[in-house]
Amino acid sequence: MTGSRGKSVFIWTVTWFCVITLSAPTVIIIGASFTAGEIIQFPPDGLSLRWYDALIGQTAFTDALWRTLYVSLVCTAVSIPAGVLAALATVRYRLRFRPAIQVYLLLPFTIPLVVSGIGMMVWFGELRILGALWPVGVGLCVINLPFMIWAVSASASALDPELENAAANCGAGPVMVFFTVTLPAVTPGIITGALLMFILAVNEFLVSLFLTDSRTVTLPVQIYNSIRSVITPDLAAISVVYIVLALAAVWLLDRLVGLEIFLKSR
């Protein structure tokens, strides 16, 4: 009796500790962003939207936000065909050197981001595309692609190969089999992977730092630049924009595939 009560007290203590430590920074930032004062503080010094207003006035931030969204879309758009084909190839076909290919595709995980960043900076420089915005998206896609492959592989390995035989038996040629059976079966994985890729690209700082310059700076880099001068509550406001983006992605994921599927596929 007392034992089980002690246990539940313990479990609840741990749970609340985790909930509070995980959410405290978010709560503090959200609170601080609504301050009416001049410095970031919690609890906020009065309530106002003045820092959001200030944010909209600063083209440095708004331009960086649009560039970030553009880069993230490029990254997601490139990752879908690349990730789907790579995942299907390694899961569904008896490739030669399959283990080697799988390890190769996971390489971006094992290389420190600084190294990837420098490598891509040098290489893009050679190709004379360093100043453009879209290569940043491609670069972010390269370093995060394993997430996409991972998500699609999870649903591809759940696909019964007999379904593809059944489709062929129904008269579908290989291309039709792919579009009518294989692709729908891995769609939950693609959606999951695409949202992950998008969020990761929105947040990626280190590699973006190497690949952008003053004309193509993206939001994480812009935030970094501004904390090097004065820290004002508009940083808290831009952080809230991030939080809203992430929540929107999670909401979208739930609407499209259901969160249980997302959590189960991990």
């Binding site: 019964d160 007999e162 379904l163 035989n165 729908p184």
Partner: peptide
Amino acid sequence: MVFQKLALFPH
């Protein structure tokens, strides 16, 4: 063909 495991398209 009717397959041993039926293989109906789930979607």
